[in-house]
Amino acid sequence: MASAAPQAAVLWPFAEMALVLSLFFAVLAVKRGWGGEALIRRGASRVKEWALAAPATAALWVFLALHSITLGELTSDARTEVLRTHSTNLTQLAEHPVSALIGSALWIEIPDLPMVALLAVAVLAPTERWLGTFRTVVVFFLGHVLATLITAGVLTTLLRVETERYVDRGFGSVVDVGVSYGSLCVAGLLTYRVRSLPLRLLTMAALMAGVVASGAFFEDYTGFGHNTAVVLGFLFHPLARPAMARDAARKASSRPPEEYGNRPDEHAGSA
């Protein structure tokens, strides 16, 4: 899940000003017919088409962007407190389980927006176009909730075995928010879109290896949660069967018909 970056508070006012100015000049270019008008219109049209094809993904990204902008306006202490309140740490899961499980997937910080945009374009939107909006939302939140609960269960067990080690690291009140669990679960399920079984298994192995390797950049519990989310995506295979069947039917219908010249002529030899 996402981790905070203190530098964002310093850089955000400049980024905010640059964004506002960019939007202002883009609107002005379209209104007055400047040189880049066609390019801006084309870009806006592509964004609109993408959002209409994957409405849940677009709505999630906008929601996360608004939350991250809100956090960017807060002081460092207030920002940490808001994130901790919406985290899936052991304290919040014990006191406010439902709000922690759902709310933790809807908060990120500004430095995490590019990664979320990449996940939206490369994972969530393609899956939504393939599975449909309903199934994609179900997989995302199931992956997020189950990976969180499994990780919390493992961490609770570790706390009982090695209390000193894990309490000293503050795992009970750590900030743990973001869309990584849900997105990685969706990514695991998306591998079933690869029709060839050997290539699909290779894709699964590559995804798993990449997630395991990325664990070096996260806390132990977050890395474990990422691995769990991917495995859950693999296990959600039944939810992908209708889309796989549809792909197979589409592939079969696109095959060229047999050429009649290869068939014996029924009238051959007739007088």
Rank of each mutant, 00 (worst) to 15 (best):
P97F: 09
A54F: 04
L60Y: 02
L64R: 05
F63H: 04
R84M: 14
S68M: 03
L74D: 02
A78D: 12
L71F: 08
L83C: 05
L93C: 01
T91Q: 12
A59S: 11
L52Q: 07
L66G: 11
T85G: 07
T75G: 15
S87P: 05
T88E: 01
L93T: 00
H86V: 03
P55C: 07
E73W: 13
T70Y: 15
L74C: 04
T57A: 02
H96V: 10
R84E: 14
A65Q: 08
G72Y: 11
A51Q: 00
L66E: 05
H96Y: 11
L93Q: 01
F63Q: 05
L90N: 01
T80R: 15
A94S: 15
E95R: 14
A54L: 05
T57D: 01
P97A: 10
H86Y: 15
D77F: 05
S76W: 12
I69M: 08
L52P: 01
A94V: 04
E81S: 15
W61N: 03
P55S: 06
R84T: 11
F63C: 13
A53D: 11
S68E: 03
L60D: 01
A53L: 11
L93I: 03
H86D: 00
H86C: 07
S87A: 13
H67Q: 14
L66K: 06
A94Y: 11
F63P: 00
A65D: 01
N89M: 05
A59N: 06
L66D: 03
H67N: 15
T70I: 06
L71R: 09
R79E: 05
A53H: 08
G72W: 11
T80G: 13
E73G: 10
A59V: 14
A54M: 03
T80W: 12
V82G: 00
W61P: 00
T91I: 06
A56K: 02
G72Q: 11
P97Q: 07
A78M: 11
Q92K: 10
W61S: 03
T57I: 02
L74H: 11
G72L: 13
A51V: 01
T75I: 08
V82R: 09
L93H: 01
P97T: 06
I69Q: 03
A51D: 00
E81T: 15
H96A: 12
E95P: 00
L90Y: 02
S68R: 04
H67G: 15
T80Q: 14
L93R: 01
N89G: 06
A59E: 08
E95S: 14
A51R: 01
A65L: 14
V82Y: 09
S87R: 05
A94E: 10
L74K: 15
A65N: 04
L74T: 04
L66W: 09
I69E: 00
A54G: 06
H86W: 14
A65Y: 09
E73D: 04
P55T: 08
H67L: 07
A54H: 04
